[in-house]
Design a protein around this nucleic acid. Structure first.
Lengths: 344, 344
DNA sequence: TTGAAAGCGATACCAG
DNA sequence: CTGGTATCGCTTTCAA
């Protein structure tokens, strides 16, 4: 059996209450006692038992992040940002993949209900209806924030959320393309029902309208934001009549897949078609041609989401002024996949 | 206050002991009782309190993965594999970045000592000496497995480990290059002290020796396995005299960076130089030219590590027959970055 | 500043 | 098969 607070109490000649105080509220014991207790603690190599502490304190000091696809490298930087903010506050990060077999929405709700975690950071905007309803219960809702994605139709009134400024991102991209003379611009979406597909498309349409232009075409994309979906979209793109001279893609992975596909079809980027991605994942700069893209500050998004959640679940915290939407700035990174619109 | 086992007991007219049994060992109560209790449980929406359960059972049903750099997409598939295996067994996955500020080795050890987690999966082979010693304590060592990397010098005698068959991977790559007529082959390493750099280099030297060849050059690489380090190695490579006609890289990211760098220097891959990567990360297939690489089965590695750990920490488990090294097969994926050795 | 003691919620042993 | 009860280890009133 491992050493407990009782052992410390006995060896340092004080009560368990005092040991506990020494550890949790050092300022509430005399200096002498503290020194004495700490010595014994160090000698025995004592560590608080977290289950006992959680049980007594009625909080776990950990939070759960729900990721749609852990295998997608897009999320790693976001998780890193969360990790950083959370651990600075002594809070643990648990991770679950919401699309993994057997991970219904219930699973994550149970974590909350069982007290395994104090809060939830959800990166998946496509939750089943039953889960959405369950999340909306008042005592649950306060413990949830969304990050990157959000529930479509929720503008922060139901759940606070942290997201990139998607519409501005699209605008930056479109402005750059129009500035290069492009007039026939297409949008390559991910899953049509995904909020990011929708939001960035809206931004695209609005930015084009500001130039007196209309969106040429939207490709529905595949089941995800992945490379293969982008690759397959190349066929669609070259078949369009008239063929767009530029494409804004909803993700970098799709953009890279698309460029690879165009390449295989004998279409050159950016000579024949200009392409812009979204995300600025780490490979974007080393892809050839180097990918022009809208950078999302993924670490920052993760950090902000974690901080937001910590404020909300702090006990005695006021319920937040709704709606809460933290919009993280984006930035257009100019590289080599866009160029002047080809002369007809 | 949330509903507890007492409430269930009262409403279903049985003792708390019976409720507990119904939930934890359904086969040890009568069918009638079980039905009765389960109805009440469902009605009240009861959930076991995990802190109380952990305290009583003296186990947390969660494990901690230590990742050297969460921001590196290489790890996401491994984590996904772990997640899958762990959650199938009802175990939670916690994640920490070992290189993050303030995450000394102590931090992860404390998780074990505090009973926050039942075991550790360590993906970082470069732990500080103090941590290595602390890990080796008998009661701790049994709860640790290494994954991907391992402590240099440990052949599974100290800690079980799951890893790719790195030497065979190098051999597959070298054999392919030699088969294409290459005689002057270089190796692009990551951090020199890293076990993967070392192991793959050893495999490379051995495979070359089998063909009666010697390794032309080794580039020490940078501080990591990243794209930038590969990019910078391009200068080194083209400066060699005689210039190697092929390079085996310790990671895909380095290979891609290298190719981008060569590209910028006017050197063509594979016409002038053949390049092989290691990992087969998701972008490898869509990089242009598509990257020839040694595929690691990352999901499998993660899954096996998780399974290994679960066996070890199962109570009453025999200490494993040491050494335990699970070697996961690798595979050479032929794409477009290698070609015949150029005629001189 | 310190100690005694009540509990947090679930489990498992021991009787019955 | 079921109930009573001690217990896991810590925190926190309440009194002194």
């Amino acid at each position: 059996m491992s050493v407990s607070i009782k052992d410390i109490a006995r060896l340092s000649g004080v009560s368990t209450a005092t040991v506990s105080r020494t550890l949790s509220h050092p300022d509430r014991v005399s200096e002498d006692t503290r020194a004495q207790v700490m010595t014994v603690v160090a000698t025995l190599g004592y560590n608080v038992n977290s289950a006992a502490r959680s049980l007594r304190r009625q909080r776990s000091d950990s939070v759960l992040a729900i990721v749609p696809d852990l295998g997608n490298p897009f999320f790693s930087a976001i998780l890193a940002g969360m990790e950083e903010a959370l651990h600075a506050a002594g809070i643990d990060l648990l991770i679950r993949d919401s699309r993994q077999a057997g991970n219904s929405g219930e699973v994550m709700l149970n974590h909350l209900r069982q007290g395994r975690v104090d809060g939830l950071i959800c990166l998946d905007g496509a939750l089943p209806e039953a889960t959405r309803r369950a999340l909306a219960a008042p005592d649950v809702a306060r413990r949830v924030v969304f990050c990157c994605e959000w529930l479509s139709g929720d503008d922060g009134a139901l759940f606070p959320s942290v997201r990139s400024d998607n519409q501005t991102g699209a605008k930056l991209a479109i402005d750059a393309l129009v500035g290069l003379g492009h007039r026939n611009i297409a949008f390559l979406a991910g899953p049509p029902s995904n909020v990011l597909s929708q939001e960035r498309r809206i931004g695209t349409v609005a930015a084009l309208a500001a130039h007196g232009l209309e969106l040429s075409q939207t490709c529905g994309g595949g089941q995800d934001f992945g490379l293969q979906a982008g690759y397959e979209a190349a066929d669609w793109l070259v078949g369009l009549e008239p063929r767009p001279t530029a494409v804004l893609c909803v993700s970098d992975q799709m953009a890279m897949g698309l460029i690879a596909g165009l390449n295989d079809l004998g279409v050159s980027v950016p000579q024949d078609i200009s392409v812009i991605g979204f995300d600025d994942i780490v490979t974007a700069a080393y892809f050839r041609p180097a990918l022009t893209t809208v950078r999302q500050n993924r670490v920052e998004i993760g950090r902000r989401a974690a901080e937001l959640l910590m404020i909300q679940v702090r006990e005695g915290a006021e319920p937040p002024e709704v709606p809460v939407v933290v919009s993280v700035p984006v930035e257009l990174i100019m590289r080599s996949t866009i160029g002047p619109a080809p002369k007809v």
